[in-house]
Design a binder for these strands. Sequence first.
RNA 1: GGGGGUGUAGCUCAGUUGGUUAGAGCGAUCGCCUGUCACGCGAUAGGUCGCGGGUUCGAGUCCCGUCACUCCCGCCA
Length: 573
Amino acid sequence: MSGWINKKRDHGNLLFIDLRDNYGITQCVIDNKNPLFKKIEKIPLETVVQFEGQVVERKKDTVNKELNSGEIEIKITNFKILGGTKELPLPVFSDQEYSEEIRLKYRFLDLRRSKIHKNIILRSNVISFIRKEMEKFGFLEFQTPILTSSSPEGARDFLVPSRLNPGKFYALPQAPQQFKQLIMVSGFDKYFQIAPCFRDEDARADRSPGEFYQLDIEMSFVEQEDIFIIVENLFNNLFKKFSNKKIQKEEFPKITFSETMLKYGTDKPDLRNPLEICDLTKIFERDDVKFEIFKNLVNKGSIVRAIVTKKTKDKPRSFFDNIDKWAKDKGSSGLAYFTFENKNDEVSGKGPIGKFFSPKACEEIMKVSNAQIGDSIFFACGQAKDVEKLLALARDKIAKDLDIIDENLFAFCWIVDYPMFENDEKSGKIKFSHNPFSMPQGNLSKLNLERPLDIKAYQYDIVCNGIELSSGAIRNHIPDLMYKLFAIAGYDKKNVDDKFSGMINALSYGAPPHGGIAPGVDRIVMLLANEKNIREVTMFPLNQNAQDLMMNAPSIIEDNQLKELNINLIKKK
RNA sequence: GGGGGUGUAGCUCAGUUGGUUAGAGCGAUCGCCUGUCACGCGAUAGGUCGCGGGUUCGAGUCCCGUCACUCCCGCCA
């Protein structure tokens, strides 16, 4: 049996060695009657050895139930060292946490450790399962180019200089978006790919810098609902197979964009969290509400929204003040609050701002917000965007404080009916809010292009536990319509022809209606492995600064290589 | 580009109000130990306290700068 020395327990005249391979740990044993004892005793941890010996049953009182092989052990008769080791920069046998720096530099050692080793195996099994399911659904897997052209919309591109075409550059694909549409135009009707995607944007805990993988899907002759059915099927099967957590609703709820922004303040709501936001702006126009700060702001166009917490009348003052303080730390003016109570057969508000609301006003608030006596309410007032943002975070914060999130649940949902366009805050101009290739909703011949902000798109997101897994859309396959929509966003016909020549050209020669989606594989594995950081499910990730500390990438390039590519470097002062 | 956190032995960390020779556990090396499975016991080695500057009689500790890692904002159609 061959493997790594995971751990030794040396009793002087009796030695136990835990031998580890990809499948687990087996205890090997030798005593001083064997002349090799002294040599084997000295072999350091993580050496790769081959032991010869007999497999023997362990005595009942020495069985180790923690090990799969705990009923047996190997009596060593001979050994061979297959791979020696220097002193280890980090211990493999340990549950300790280590700095990312050392883990990434010695990733091959880190990957030997049990938890991450299992995560990587899980990832492999998940991808294998997805392939089999997609093939079962009748999809074909195709590869698309890695060296392609830079696209004007979206994230920053990774660029690759072309030696044969001096001064020109390839871009690595941010996603195979245009190619998968071209595949549909080419007459293949169900495509998928475990596709590498490259975006030169800054990292987050759940976002690798550089590269990540999508389960890229596209289908022709379909409507939105057809894609939902495929994805719901796949995800239900996948998440049931690889996790014991329950799926909240196997038919994923569909929430419109405007509804999710009102009820959850975000387009990636965590539906495990029962708290909802409601709009109470109108209440502050009443004469029997005397909370002047909010009333003045509402007069000037601010909105008021609120979160109700159930049966929190007996929570200590510190519970409320902590949340208010938390909101102030976030840079807001805080969260005003009170608790509904019954006083002399009348509803009244107990708490710092309770006195500003008449019994009638309280009753109206309870009606709108679905609150009962004994519940509390937290108010935020300001510009719509700021209020949405703050209350979205407050939903998470309050739910955590109240411990009302069921960690044993996957709560999927679809966010649908995204607006086609939005106002760019900086420039004041109208821009595509999501994907410029999405199909607008409604009767296309009667589309009111004069009011672009009212146009909704067949554009959807799938969200699980507050994590955005993917966007998708039914595509616009009608060139005339595409020119019109691009014109609204400030691109003239020539511009569109230049930037999207491949696409526009292809759509002009008999394109089928089509649509798709591209769920993030890394994030799916994160959910299944219950990991908060994407590096825990990535074999060889880049660090936050997009460097590979093990391979020393990126690295300085020799002058002759640069010359070949016609590139001069600008010397930084 | 901006904000927060961290940086002390190979690894994980402690280090009081600025005060004698900077400590512990794991690992390494050496010795003892025949049923352990986080084996046990004893000893030894191991330090540019991230780096540079400053304040001070005296700095791991205070100040300024800088670097690295990380989390967040911006960014991510």
